[in-house]
């Protein structure tokens, strides 16, 4: 992950639910009460980078408490994980978070959850196969206008296929682009053979 990786930066900006363990003066504006100190026990959604810093920062608290503790964001919540276990292809990940996998890797680094890595990995691989299928079927050179039947696709442009593609997160979009580039340049090459 490069320093200038825009996706990494945007992933760091994802909000995760945090609970403050200590009273913090002058942070009241985070909870819409600018004049008061932030009370312990307040739940605030903080960006990942800030939550991470606050969670590991040394507070000097005698009981060893950190500023915040955080839970898994709703994108990785139980509902979503159960749905992904049932059928990875049926969940529009983009609605959960545009940087679903980035968020997931980050959270897996921070929280040790038994089931999560397996489910996420299975989701990624299952959906990747589906992504490749769509990338290959979705027209090549200038065939955007053609109908699905002409392309020999049984997925169709509307309906399930398009719905699925709209639900891709950023990793999957990149994957789609790569797979599509490959299929497209293959098609271009094949059409060019006859010209030489």
């Amino acid at each position: 992950m490069s320093y200038y990786d825009i996706d990494a930066i945007l992933t760091d900006a994802e909000k995760i639910p945090c609970t403050f363990q200590l009273d913090v003066p002058d942070l009241g504006y985070l909870d819409n009460t600018p004049t008061q100190p932030l009370k312990a026990g307040t739940k605030v959604n903080l960006p990942l980078w800030l939550a991470e810093m606050l969670a590991i920062a040394n507070t000097g608290d005698p009981e060893g408490r950190s500023f915040v503790t955080f839970d898994l964001p709703p994108a990785l919540g139980n509902d979503v994980i159960q749905a992904l276990k049932a059928d990875p292809r049926a969940v529009p990940l983009r609605d959960q978070s545009p940087h679903f996998y980035g968020l997931a890797t980050h959270m897996m680094d921070l929280v040790s959850e038994d089931k999560l890595p397996e489910v996420v990995r299975n989701t990624f691989v299952t959906r990747a196969a589906e992504v490749a299928l769509h990338a290959r079927k979705l027209g090549g050179v200038g065939s955007r206008g053609r109908t699905a039947a002409e392309e020999g696709s049984n997925l169709g442009f509307g309906g399930a296929g398009e719905e699925f593609l709209r639900g891709l997160d950023e990793w999957e979009r990149k994957l789609f682009r790569k797979a599509h580039e490959g299929a497209k340049s293959g098609k271009e090459w094949m059409e060019n053979i006859k010209k030489h």
């Binding site: 990624f124 490749a132 797979a179």
Partner: peptide, 17 residues
């Protein structure tokens, strides 16, 4: 040549995850 991008992408993703 056609599938290199995709396969590398998948393997890289799995590695990160």
């Amino acid at each position: 040549a056609e599938s290199r991008g995709f396969v590398l992408g998948v393997v890289d993703g799995v590695r990160k995850l």
